[in-house]
């Protein structure tokens, strides 16, 4: 495929947005994107002419994140990887107004989070998102449903939501 590099460059802003939302901070997000681009260059021979490069890159990013999750899941200290709201509140680079949604995203299970972000943030169609995540659409809808229920509970119904409403 000719000129795929420019397509890579054009997709980077969206990859960064997704990765930043997925990881919870811009630095980790950029690292993930960098890894994605590196892998994409290495896999360029597998890229077919009719492949949507954006979907391809997002699927690579998803696979990298999935691999990282597996490593974390297998880590004996995975318990301590949970981030509570206090941790996030100490972050300086998060707008206080955004802490609730950022922390809520951070608490979403990864599968639900990536589904939700692909659909809601990146506005991929369900078919495209299922292609990226390599899951059937039914599974994708289920994850999306779970994610939205969680976020509604987190942002509108629990104590945290009330606190925000007071603010």
């Amino acid at each position: 495929m000719d000129n795929y590099q420019q397509s890579f460059a054009d997709t980077i802003p969206y990859l960064r947005r997704y990765a930043s939302a997925y990881t919870g901070d811009a630095v980790s997000g950029d690292a993930l994107v960098q890894h994605t681009i590196e892998c994409a260059h290495g896999l360029i021979n597998f890229l077919q002419d009719d492949t949507d490069i954006a979907i391809w890159l997002f699927s690579i990013l998803h696979n990298i994140a999935l691999e990282a999750r597996k490593q974390v899941d297998n880590h004996p200290d995975n318990e301590v990887l949970n981030i509570d709201t206090i941790d996030m509140a100490l972050l300086e680079d998060i707008d206080p107004d955004d802490i609730d949604i950022v922390t809520a995203l951070a608490q979403l299970p990864a599968e639900q989070k990536e589904t939700f972000l692909l659909v809601s943030l990146e506005r991929f169609t369900y078919e495209e998102a299922s292609q990226i995540l390599s899951v059937p659409i039914g599974t994708l809808i289920l994850r999306l449903n779970s994610a939205r229920k969680f976020l509604i509970q987190r942002l509108f119904l629990d104590d945290f939501a009330e606190l925000r409403a007071v603010q």
Partner: peptide, 19 residues
């Protein structure tokens, strides 16, 4: 929250890497 990231300048290292 996250749309402004798209408007940001892409870090040069990422840009070079992509190209």
């Amino acid at each position: 929250v996250f749309d402004p990231i798209v408007e940001e300048d892409v870090p040069d290292d990422l840009y070079y890497l992509a190209l």
